[in-house]
């Protein structure tokens, strides 16, 4: 790895009181790389993901996006301005969508570009249409979130994040809250993004998806990265006992 990392997490640690959730984790992600983070619940994988855009601030360690430190130590006011700038470059999609129920799909997507990038109504609308077409949701542009299925909500949430033209996308168990038959449409939207070489970090329980789409898989447990490597290695020939145990349980559960 001679290339300078796109995302560079250096010695990330986080604790709540005496409970250590992340223990000195370092992770480099290259531009265009797609990384899956798997592991049992409580392993710290979501916390690590949410530290990348400082939604869950680290106790120790640094997060860098290209040549900017995301969690740069600054006085509160300056920090607020800095982090808002950084977050515009880091898209995130959540397990529970977090669409704004009081706005239409169009309103959800155009809000941030209009407020933060000062796009005109026409420009923002064009952008919303483009991003919605991208996830196959253009025909729902004037619907409210309450009128959409879970899968449709999640595709809109992806479009909303993409409308800020982020440099990296973070996915936090985005299919975990969906009915099984709705998972595929969201996975397809993500696959499409992957094919366009978006840099993606994906926390997931779906081993099949991680295997198909990702360049690298990290297995986390108890706040550390136990093992990492290309999916074919992690899934076929895991070295660590903990990884084997986890995969055994999960692959059994998924095989029908």
């Amino acid at each position: 790895m001679t290339e300078k990392p796109f995302i560079d997490i250096r010695h990330a640690a986080k604790s709540y009181g005496t409970l250590e959730v992340l223990k000195d984790i370092s992770l480099q992600v290259q531009k265009g790389q797609i990384v899956a983070i798997i592991g049992p619940s409580g392993s710290g994988k979501s916390t690590l993901l949410r530290a990348i855009n400082d939604l869950d601030p680290l106790t120790k360690g640094e997060v860098w996006l290209e040549d900017m430190q995301v969690n740069k130590p600054l006085p509160p006011r300056q920090y607020e301005r800095h982090i808002n700038q950084m977050r515009q470059q880091i898209g995130m999609v959540f397990q529970h969508f977090n669409l704004f129920p009081h706005l239409t799909v169009r309103g959800n997507i155009t809000l941030a570009p209009k407020m933060l990038k000062k796009l005109s109504d026409a420009e923002a609308n064009a952008l919303a249409e483009r991003e919605l077409a991208h996830v196959g949701m253009l025909d729902r542009i004037d619907y409210y979130p309450s009128q959409l299925s879970g899968g449709q909500k999640q595709r809109v949430a992806i479009a909303r994040a993409l409308a800020m033209e982020p440099k990296v996308m973070l996915f936090d168990e985005v299919t975990s809250a969906l009915d099984p038959e709705l998972v595929e449409e969201v996975n397809l939207a993500m696959k499409k993004l992957a094919e366009e070489h978006m840099t993606m970090i994906i926390v997931t329980h779906e081993m099949g998806f991680a295997q198909d789409v990702c360049d690298r898989v990290l297995f986390m447990d108890q706040g550390v990265v136990v093992e990492e490597g290309p999916p074919e290695v992690i899934f076929r020939t895991p070295k660590h006992e903990r990884t084997k145990n986890f995969l055994r349980k999960h692959l059994q559960g998924n095989a029908q």
């Binding site: 808002n84 700038q85 515009q88 959540f94 704004f100 809000l111 941030a112 933060l116 994040a161 800020m164």
Partner: peptide, 12 residues
């Protein structure tokens, strides 16, 4: 989650 969703987009 509403708060997080908005902050993640870069809203203050």
């Amino acid at each position: 989650g509403q708060y997080e969703g908005a902050r993640t987009l870069g809203l203050s």
